[in-house]
Design a binder for these strands. Sequence first.
DNA 1: TTATTTGTTATAGTAAGTGTAACAATTAAA
DNA 2: TTTAATTGTTACACTTACTATAACAAATAA
Lengths: 140, 140
Amino acid sequence: MSASTKLSNSVKALCFLANSNKPCNSNEISENTGINASKLRKLLSLLCKNLIVESNKGATGGFTLKKSSDQIHLQEIYCAIEDRKAFDLHSSSDNNLSNIFDNKVNSYFLDLFNNIQIDIENKMREIKLSDIINFIKNKK
Amino acid sequence: MSASTKLSNSVKALCFLANSNKPCNSNEISENTGINASKLRKLLSLLCKNLIVESNKGATGGFTLKKSSDQIHLQEIYCAIEDRKAFDLHSSSDNNLSNIFDNKVNSYFLDLFNNIQIDIENKMREIKLSDIINFIKNKK
DNA sequence: TTATTTGTTATAGTAAGTGTAACAATTAAA
DNA sequence: TTTAATTGTTACACTTACTATAACAAATAA
């Protein structure tokens, strides 16, 4: 799954959980969101580890939100599901002479991309799950 | 090539051209940057179409910068090499009941990602090729 | 004990990225 | 006019990543 698909799938599942007053299992969420149950469990287990949802095994188990939707921010969802690997720039390591130049350009772009990443996360930090739920409610 | 690799490769080639006072062919640039000559020609032909570099075929041909390095911005390099396709969010189209909800969440994220894209391009618009060249010169 | 559910691993199929080669079209120079 | 060089584009084999789903052990409530 690409980063953006993972994020929107996570939000779809979380929206469904926010609307439910009982634990929901992966099949139930799958039927209501169209996302494959196995994929859902993978995503939700990551959200569990980051204390955004709670999971319980067994007969009456399933998933529930661990916080209210106005206390869940898009940035923490993103961080939970995405291992923010540093950008790698395919340094062309065969050419000895240009390695110093190569490294300098790469370090410039690593820095730039990291700053962009920080900007994106700051933007996401200001968006609550409840904001998205409201957007969906009000959009005709 | 990923977007970031394409961008850094382009900048490496452009830095080399900025430093040269004569047309350079793709083999020459390849030897000095470690980037495959065929790949370079692909990138540089895109930069040609966007009037950032000039190309000439034939015996004494090669590539030259069409503008000075302080008139070339990172954003125009990025736009030249990247066809900014809209994000697609793998809408799960099999489930009829959830399609309305699905579309709303997707439209929310399309909007968000487009805004992020605009922010990134605005950031790149403020960076000149000459800035990167200076960074490389001064970095120890 | 049994049925159910999560969490994780495996797998098969598809798509995308990578590196390189090949060659037609073009063009300056001999 | 001929020749050699160069770009621009297409092709191709190879690898890597992505996608969707299945399978099953571990856990757990009934």
